[in-house]
């Protein structure tokens, strides 16, 4: 009897919830004429693309231009290159400590990001779900910390780093970066945790899970998109960070890419544009790859919620 009813219910069509995977709905397309679409969609979109991508194009172009073409705008079209060369990139990779800087950046960014995400997960879960006295205040205070600009904070932080004897080491950056990463990641994750239905946790509680098990077996697997966006955000911030890296590292072999490029590839007042741009280009490629892989998660975490 039960079985029969089960099958009847199972075959019932239309009750399966379908999650729309994109915003493209067919609904009102009949209102859209092609000229209208061009004016309202493709034209503005194209303009924005042009503005956003031009610096990148310029950077790529400069890094393969022979020195003679770099500043001679009379003979050559500045927007194009003839006889492209890999000299700048070669010089960068083999004539400087660039691989070392790249490694430093990667190491510092990865370590600082993991440290921050770990701390943020604990903080965000506690503030979002453990209703302890003052959780709101703690949440607000963490956010306030985010509002203090690094250009003010670097002076006291530098003296703290000096005090612990960490000056001019990657560890200095690994410990300082979380001061900017944790507040933002905590808020991002708090928002994400709040979208996870509370019943799931109650259900897990009754099922016999401890708080730690709820966090690791229920919440974190469901918060993966949120974790990924927190990760990307933190990683990007570390990767591009300038002011702390500039003040807290001095030796050539300890510098990160953003600092090293401007301090080591500029001789006095001579800007070696080819190498500078090659350094910036190579330095931004890992981030491009990272974004390309996770952009969908990133967007969904910023806009979406957990769906059952």
């Amino acid at each position: 009897m039960v079985k029969a009813m089960t099958d009847a219910a199972a075959e019932k069509p239309g009750t399966t919830t379908q999650v729309l995977t994109s915003d493209t709905q067919e609904g009102m397309t009949y209102l859209e004429s092609i000229p209208r679409r061009i004016v309202t969609l493709w034209l503005p979109l194209g303009l924005i693309m042009l503005i956003l991508l031009f610096p990148f194009y310029w950077m790529a172009l400069t890094s393969v231009k022979p020195n003679a073409q770099l500043i001679d705008m009379e003979t050559y079209n500045p927007f194009w290159v003839v006889e492209p060369t890999l000299d700048h990139i070669k010089k960068l990779l083999f004539g400087t400590q660039y691989p070392r800087w790249l490694w430093n950046t990667m190491y510092v960014a990865t370590a600082a990001t993991f440290l921050s995400i770990f701390a943020s997960v604990l903080a965000a879960y506690a503030i979002a779900r453990l209703k302890f006295r003052g959780s709101q205040v703690v949440g607000a205070t963490i956010f306030m910390a985010y509002l203090v600009p690094p250009s003010i904070l670097f002076i006291p932080l530098a003296s703290v780093i000096h005090f612990y004897g960490l000056f001019d080491s990657p560890l200095a950056l690994i410990l300082v970066y979380p001061t900017i990463l944790i507040p933002f990641s905590t808020w991002l994750l708090m928002g994400y945790f709040k979208t996870i239905p509370f019943e799931l946790e109650e259900c897990a509680l009754i099922d016999g899970a401890s708080r730690w098990q709820i966090l690791t077996k229920i919440i974190l697997p469901l918060a993966v998109p949120g974790l990924i966006s927190a990760f990307i955000f933190s990683f990007t911030l570390c990767w591009n960070e300038f002011i702390y890296a500039l003040t807290l590292t001095t030796s050539v072999q300890n510098k990160t890419v953003p600092v090293a490029i401007v301090s080591e590839l500029v001789d006095g007042d001579v800007y070696r544009w080819g190498s500078l741009m090659a350094g910036a280009l190579v330095g931004s490629l890992p981030l491009v790859v990272l974004y390309a892989f996770f952009v969908e998660h990133y967007v969904s975490a910023m806009t979406g919620a957990v769906k059952e």
């Binding site: 239905p197 019943e199 897990a204 059952e308």
Partner: peptide, 13 residues
């Protein structure tokens, strides 16, 4: 005890 919730509370993952 075991509890069945209104919106089922199945673990989606």
């Amino acid at each position: 005890i075991a509890m069945v919730f209104q919106n089922y509370a199945l673990y989606p993952h």
